[in-house]
Design a protein around this nucleic acid. Structure first.
Lengths: 149, 149
DNA sequence: TTGTATTTAATGTAATTACATTTAATTTTG
DNA sequence: CAAAATTAAATGTAATTACATTAAATACAA
């Protein structure tokens, strides 16, 4: 089931053009599945992404700008994403003591607990990709990295 | 510049997890560039996608449903996308004579002219990817197809 | 020091998207 | 045939995103 069949497109102008469409389409395809996975937890992909970034800090706070730099979708409005997470009591936001322009964001135990729950869901879901060999996955990661230069 | 460095993430739980993030991130990355390219033409990626699908019909009309089946982002609201294209006089919408529930959508000469203009822009931009060999591109397409099963 | 520029985050807004519902037409079933 | 089910598209709406602007704090330069 290649991209040509998927989009019912008989030919592409070039292998480059095909790869561009394929990368976007496949990205949307995975993102959609992730969204479905997260829906029961009242969490959008971007919110989930922010939570995981904060967990990676191991308790250390992060500014909004630092969060953006690590996000998969950097066009998201991180201020408002953090808003939502604060609303849901999963993270804490407080003035940064060193630079009062900045804001420190911290994940709360409730947020960590939610992520732990989601780890299990995620681990189950990732099995969906075990039709790919380890070599294939490594090669795919290399090629995607190369694609972005 | 791998995905780890890009997102400042030291490790991933597995090569699968890394590939998932990489596919989404790279998809967003290309989509963002395409959007920037289209901005001067007052066209969103989804609108552009619909226009190109219609051009592929070589004058034959298509129903909204048929358009959706060929779109890269199938969660888009095709009705409203077509609305926008009708507003801008790039496509024509008319009742399907065979099934009055359906709507025939046709690209207009103005739409074709716009696309022709964009072909040139696109061709220039695609050169951005000529650091990838033809073999790399073919392999990338294969792996992305395989990734989706 | 003081005024200017830059940085950081928040906010206003318009457009888009997601999701459910509605409307109208067609198909299927009894 | 008539009623029920299904299909195609449009629409209402709430949430999200994109984009520009604003506000506040800090850095820099004269």
């Amino acid at each position: 089931m290649g991209i040509s069949h998927e989009l019912q497109q008989s030919t592409f102008a070039s292998e480059e053009a095909k790869a561009i469409v394929n990368v976007i389409f496949t990205g949307n395809w995975v993102a959609y599945q992730q969204q479905e996975l997260l829906k029961p937890y009242d969490l959008t992909m971007q919110q989930y992404n922010v939570l995981r970034i904060l967990r990676g800090q191991n308790g250390k706070p992060m500014t909004v700008l630092a969060i953006i730099e690590r996000m998969m979708d950097r066009t998201s409005n991180a201020s408002r994403l953090v808003d939502k997470l604060v609303e849901k009591k999963w993270v804490l936001r407080r003035e940064c003591p060193i630079d009062r322009r900045a804001v420190d964001v911290l994940i709360l135990p409730e947020g960590l607990a939610l992520l732990q729950q989601l780890d299990e869901v995620q681990n189950q879901w990732v099995k969906r990709f075990n039709h790919m060999s380890q070599e294939d996955l490594i090669k795919l990661n290399e090629l995607l990295d190369h694609f972005r230069n």
